[in-house]
Simulated assay, not measured.
Amino acid sequence: MRRKPREKRPFSLKYVPVATDGGPDQVLTIENHTEVSVLPTLAFTPISVYGHELPHVVTQTVNGSHLGGPLLPAGGTLRDILRFDGPGSRQVRGVRVELAAVEEIDHPALEQDTRSVMIDLEQKATDEPADFWGIGLVNPNSFGVTVRVSLLEFEERERDFPRQVVDVVTLQEDVDLASVSNHVIWLPEDVRGQFHEVVHHLRQPTYA
């Protein structure tokens, strides 16, 4: 007797408290296995290394997925970085994630992922804050997209604790990227060398 194959869930979630590839810690990835683009709103319950809930810890996200707004394209991926505050925040080693709401929207599936990178004066990718003079944005798709861009500053590493975001500066205006295009945004002098990472996420289109 053949077993009936399990139906794939419409969304899957993965949380990595400490990165092993040199990237940011406390990264949440949500994958959309449907053919519909959505605006998800997520709810979080922080968990200790022993599996206990930490009720006094407040969870926030860099891209705002706890508030709704970031766009998760059909068949695509949304990444967000979590920050934990309050008594017990240093004990967080996991998180229980629930989809509090999902709004379907009309947006095409991405052909390829959009990208954002830190660049130096020669417009070459860099991971050194001192050389971080600008933001490079790439849209390899055959249609325009709208992205929201944020600069992140991280705390100094303390023992084996996850490294938390201590400051987030989000560009005042969302950026409209034309089809198959590159775009450069130069940073003001007063913020150069301050930030360690640039991130972006898709928003509902504002382009014509």
Rank of each mutant, 00 (worst) to 15 (best):
Ala130Leu: 15
Arg192Val: 15
His201Ala: 00
Leu152Asn: 02
Ile135Asp: 07
Leu42Phe: 01
Asn32Phe: 10
Ser142Cys: 06
Asp127Gly: 12
Val147Phe: 15
Gln26Arg: 12
Gln123Phe: 12
Val169Arg: 14
Gly51Ala: 07
Thr170His: 04
Val18Asn: 11
Pro108Leu: 03
Gly136Val: 01
Glu7His: 12
Asp167Val: 03
Gln112Leu: 11
Asp80Cys: 00
Thr146Lys: 09
Arg192Pro: 13
Pro10Leu: 08
Arg3Ala: 10
Phe143Pro: 05
Gly193Leu: 10
Pro108Arg: 05
Glu111Asn: 01
Ser89Cys: 14
Arg83Leu: 13
Val145Trp: 02
Leu151Asn: 07
Glu53Tyr: 07
Asp190Glu: 15
Phe154Val: 06
Thr170Cys: 05
Val102Ile: 15
Arg192Met: 14
Glu156Ser: 09
Arg2Val: 09
Gln172Gly: 14
Leu72Gln: 12
Tyr15Gln: 06
Val36Tyr: 04
Val199Trp: 00
Asp21Ala: 11
Gly75Pro: 12
Leu78Asp: 11
Gly136Ile: 01
Gln60Phe: 12
Arg6Asn: 05
Gln123Lys: 12
Ile135Ala: 12
Val147Ala: 13
Gln204Asn: 04
His56Trp: 11
Leu78Glu: 11
Arg192Gly: 13
Glu111Gln: 08
His107Leu: 03
Ser116Val: 08
Pro140Asp: 04
Val117Cys: 02
Ile81Leu: 11
Arg2Phe: 10
Val198Asp: 03
Val27Glu: 05
Leu54Phe: 05
Asp21Gln: 09
Asp85Ile: 00
Val165Tyr: 04
Pro188Gly: 09
Leu71Trp: 08
Ser142Asp: 15
Arg83Phe: 05
Gln26Tyr: 05
Val165His: 04
Val199Gly: 01
Gln172His: 14
Glu35Phe: 01
Gly64Pro: 13
Ala109His: 01
Arg3Gln: 11
Thr77Ser: 05
Glu189Val: 10
Asn182Lys: 12
Val175Tyr: 02
Gly144Lys: 10
His33Ile: 02
Val168Ile: 14
Thr41Val: 13
Leu152Pro: 01
Thr77Asn: 01
Asn139His: 13
Asp160Met: 03
Asp174Thr: 15
Gly23Thr: 05
Leu152Thr: 01
Pro108Met: 03
Phe143Ile: 04
Val95Phe: 06
Gly64Ala: 11
Phe132Gly: 03
Thr77His: 02
Asp85Gly: 00
Asn141His: 12
His107Ser: 02
Ile81Asp: 07
Asp131Trp: 13
Pro40Trp: 07
Ile119His: 04
Ser65Arg: 00
Pro162Arg: 09
Phe84Trp: 05
Asp190Arg: 08
Pro73Ala: 05
Ser181Pro: 15
Gly68Cys: 05
Glu104Val: 01
Asp21Asn: 14
Asp80Ser: 03
Val16Trp: 01
Arg148Gln: 15
Ala100Cys: 04
Gly94Arg: 00
Val169His: 13
Ile47Val: 13
Arg163Ile: 13
His33Ala: 09
Leu71Ser: 09
Ala101Leu: 06
Leu13Cys: 11
Ala125Ile: 03
Trp186Asn: 06
Ala125Val: 07
Glu104Met: 00
Arg3Thr: 08
Thr114His: 07
Ser142Ile: 02
Leu72Lys: 13
Val138Met: 08
Val57Trp: 04
Asp106Cys: 00
Ser12His: 10
Ala100Asn: 10
